[in-house]
Design a binder for these strands. Sequence first.
DNA 1: ATCCTTCTTTAGAATTATTCCAATTTCAAC
DNA 2: GTTGAAATTGGAATAATTCTAAAGAAGGAT
Lengths: 142, 142
Amino acid sequence: MSTHAIHSDALAQKLADSGLRNTPQREFVYDALLTKRDHPTADEVYARVKTQLPGISLATVYNCLETLVQCDLVRAVNFERAPTRYCPNLHPHAHFHDETTGATHDIELPASLLAEIKAVLPPGYNADVIELTFRGKLPATR
Amino acid sequence: MSTHAIHSDALAQKLADSGLRNTPQREFVYDALLTKRDHPTADEVYARVKTQLPGISLATVYNCLETLVQCDLVRAVNFERAPTRYCPNLHPHAHFHDETTGATHDIELPASLLAEIKAVLPPGYNADVIELTFRGKLPATR
DNA sequence: ATCCTTCTTTAGAATTATTCCAATTTCAAC
DNA sequence: GTTGAAATTGGAATAATTCTAAAGAAGGAT
Ligand SMILES: [Mn+2]
Ligand SMILES: [Mn+2]
Ligand SMILES: [Zn+2]
Ligand SMILES: [Zn+2]
C-alpha cells in the first residue's frame, strides 16, 4: 500500500458515489488535509502536495479541494475575507480563530447545543448550513 | 435639520470619541445603512450615496465603512467569499442568508443562548467575537 | 488492441473585491 | 491667515480565485 493511499478508501467510495474518478492528485490533496489537520489554505496544500507530486498545478489543487468539498469529505472554512481554509473534520464543530498565532482550532458542538441554535430561527426558516465562528486571543502558554 | 443629519448624533458622538472628524461622506454612508437595512455591499452603498453626493468615490465609501466598523457603529458581515456586507444592527444577532433571493436576515440572539454558546469553549479560550451564520432557502411566499 | 468519449489536469490569462498611493482638499487649531 | 493633520479622490496595484483552451489519462464498446 503506497503512502498516499492510506486514506483512499473513504475517498474512493465517495468519488464513486458521485460518479467521479479517483486520481493521484485527489488522493494526495486529501491526504495532505488528513495528515496535518491545521486548516491549511489552498496555497499551503499546494506546497505540501508539491513535495510528493512535483508536477501538480495550483489550479488542480483548487479543483481537487472543490471536488472534496462537493463530496462532503472536506469543509471550506472562511474567516472574514482571508483565504479559504480546508478542514477534513466531518463532525459538527465550530472554529476558534486565534488572533495571536493565526491558528484555527476545532470546537466540537454537542447535538443539544446545535438543536438550541436551530431553535432561534423563526418558523419557515430552515437552515441547510450553520456556521459558528469564534475569534480571540489564546494565552501564549499552551 | 438636513436629511442626511437625521442619524448624525450617535455618529458625531462616536467619531468624537475616537478622535475622528465628522464629514458629509461619513454621514451619508452611515445614513445609507440606516435608511435601508438590507446589508448592502460597498458597491451598493456607493450607488446609494452617489445619488446624494455625486462626487463621492468608491475608495471613500470603503474608508467610511471601515471607519464606521472601527467606531462600533456597523458590523461587517461575510458569507463565504462574497463581497462584504454592512449591518448597522448593534444588538447581538446572527445572520440567515437566503440562497433563493440572496437576502440577508437578522436573527436576534437571546443572551441565554449566547451564554450557552460561549460555554462550549474549553478553559482558556476567550472569544472577543462570535459569529453565527445560517444558510438555507426560505419559502418563496413571504 | 484500437476507437471514442468523457473526465481531468495543466499553464497562463482573466476576474474582482479590496487596498494602496500620491496628489489635492478640507478643516480645526493656533 | 497660516499651518499641519486628517480626509478624500482617481487610478494603479494586489491577490485569491476562476476561467479558458489545449493536452493527457481512463473507461467502455467494438
Ligand atoms: Mn492561500
Ligand atoms: Mn460589492
Ligand atoms: Zn475544522
Ligand atoms: Zn445584521
